[in-house]
Design a binder for these strands. Structure first.
Length: 513
RNA sequence: GGCCCGUUCGUCUAGGGGUUAGGACGCGUCCCUUUCACGGACGAAACACGGGUUCGAUUCCCGUACGGGCUACCA
């Protein structure tokens, strides 16, 4: 019988969740939803020295914004396997029990070496030109551990409170084979694997032990994580094996990494591409550093998620704009790539543009209102319903030009504040000695208008042209907005209103000679 | 350095023993538009290299190069 699909996203609260982490969470989520399974959020806070205040709340808030909601776990109502924070799970002696089982089976041992002794060992091995200096089947013979010390000595050391760790006893020269859903069979010789610390001297388990214990306890069916874990997978296989749990082991899937847009390396917290690396604004209290988020930069969650999903995965056809429901429906690990994918800021913007266009004008107006307010131009808007209508129409006109809602203001600030300068290029090219008289007359016609709508202004304009001769639309635009480009002229004039338009033209005519 | 993973247009990718190697972003040209954008049409642009295997390899195998990851009492 197939195991029920249960997957987990298990970040450690050492900082804000960056987009690479979001994608790992996303793939887990898509897979769970696709198979009607469970998606769990587990917090792996076994390293108190790296704990960052606020990180956990950030992770939860980020997942919520992204629409990647766990149905079990920290911040999402817990569930049958609570607690979901490893620091809290430790209290029951859970991890220690598993470590003890390994010791009893002869597959783990106590090690009393101090960090100085470990440093010395590494230096010694490096000096001896050992290719991979590590605590392993060879070097452990010269260290202070329960394999080299007598039973009595070990007992004495432990009873006297000497700090110790528990290490995995990795055999020498044994072939470790494991299957990865994305990569196929991977073979590693155990000589390459070091005797990993399983339980630290502070009593906390390391990731290696903790995630295995929890995956087993929480009945996880698939361990989906980043490629950076591939090298330690052989050690994990050994732990499952020595615990007699190989048959309950989750299936493995190592996701390709997201790489920097330029040059090389994996994506870092700060990137010069100009786009955020975090879903939400993140402020690290410890370092005092702040990072902007996608949300605050004007991205919509669906665009962000869509972009992330297609970084290293594709549906097998040419679809690109896919809402979450479609991503879920199409998702499979078979279509996840093996190689790392460079993050593409341009395409990311394009995704947001696509989603921006899909949103209704009224909806955009609602999102834009607070942005406008922050610019201090609320006063310029008509009150109440009229203001809403104005903003909705404004969004209709401006959205075709923008990638982000945050650009709306810069693209159309002249809708809210009259210009105080006029595009030099257009003026020097098109303004001549006849212009002043010509556009004064046009303005008179505007002033006399009894009706003011897109249609009526268009009609008025054409009438003026037959009467006064050819008019220059771009010049009219500059007189009213100060800039050379923008939405359809007539639409814009109509929205601005008769009074505003005629006032602005008058003002321009007094400035221009 | 060692080990592991990878390599199709600049980027994200489809494909797969015989294809005009397809799509998307970006770029360029044209059309639409009395502006800009949107939209439409078209275009430039790729199988890392060397050996095999084969009638035939971009596709399979091996090397090399290049890229990435790991190499902690961090995850």
């Amino acid at each position: 019988m197939e195991k029920r699909v249960r997957v987990r996203f298990a970040p450690s609260p050492t900082g804000g969740l960056h987009m690479g982490g979001v994608r790992t969470a996303l793939f887990n989520y898509l897979f769970a939803k696709k198979h009607g399974g469970d998606f769990i959020l587990r917090i792996e806070d076994t390293d108190q020295t790296r704990y960052v205040k606020g990180a956990e709340d950030y992770i939860i808030a980020a997942l919520k914004w992204c629409g990647i909601e766990p149905n079990e776990g920290v911040g999402f109502g817990d569930g049958p396997y609570k607690p979901y924070r490893q620091s809290e799970r430790k209290a029951s002696g859970l991890y220690k029990n598993y470590a003890d089982k390994l010791i009893a089976g002869g597959h783990a041992y106590y090690a009393f070496d101090t960090s100085e002794e470990l440093d010395e060992m590494r230096k010694r091995l490096e000096a001896a030109k050992v290719a991979a200096p590590q605590y392993n089947s060879v070097s452990r013979q010269n260290m202070r551990n329960s394999l080299t010390l007598s039973e009595d000595e070990v007992k004495k050391l432990i009873e006297s409170g000497t700090p110790y760790v528990i290490r995995l006893k990795v055999p020498r020269n044994e072939e470790i084979r494991f299957h990865d859903i994305i990569r196929g069979w991977v073979v590693v010789n155990s000589t390459q694997v070091d005797d990993k610390v399983l339980l630290k001297s502070d009593g906390m388990p390391t990731y290696h032990l903790a995630h295995i214990v929890d995956d087993i306890e929480m009945k996880i069916s698939h361990a989906v994580r980043g490629e950076e874990w591939l090298p330690s997978a052989p050690a994990h296989i050994l732990i499952y094996r020595y615990l007699g749990l190989e048959s309950d082991m989750p299936l493995l899937a190592h996701l390709p990494l997201i790489l920097k847009p330029d040059g090389n390396g994996k994506l870092s917290k700060r990137d010069k591409s100009g786009l955020p690396m975090f879903p939400l604004d993140w402020h690290d209290e410890r370092t005092g550093e702040s990072y902007v988020g996608y949300r605050e930069s004007g991205f919509t969650a669906d665009a962000f998620i869509n972009m992330l999903a297609l970084l290293g995965w594709n549906p097998g056809d040419t679809r690109e704009i896919m809402p979450m429901s479609e991503l879920i429906e199409s998702f499979s690990f078979e279509r996840v790539n093996k190689s790392g994918a460079k993050f593409d800021p341009e395409k990311t913007k394009w995704f947001n543009q696509q989603y921006l266009r899909k949103r209704s004008d009224a909806e955009l107006a609602e999102s834009f209102a607070p942005i406008l307010e922050s610019k201090g131009h609320k006063a310029g808007l008509p009150a109440g319903e009229a203001g809403k209508v104005f903003l909705t129409e404004f969004c209709r006109l401006i959205k075709e030009k923008a990638h982000f809602i945050n650009e709306f203001y810069d693209l159309g600030s002249y809708f809210f504040v009259a210009p105080n300068s006029y595009d030099e290029k257009v003026i020097s090219k098109k303004w001549n000695e006849n212009s002043k008289a010509l556009y004064t007359k046009l303005n008179e016609k505007f002033s006399a208008a009894s009706e003011w709508s897109i249609d009526s202004v268009t009609k008025l304009f054409h009438e003026a042209e037959t009467e006064l001769g050819k008019l220059d639309m771009q010049l009219v635009r500059v007189l009213v907005t100060g800039v050379s480009g923008g939405p359809q002229l007539m639409d814009m004039l109509a929205l601005l209103g008769k009074t505003e338009v005629t006032n602005r033209i008058s003002a321009a005519l007094t400035v221009l000679k």
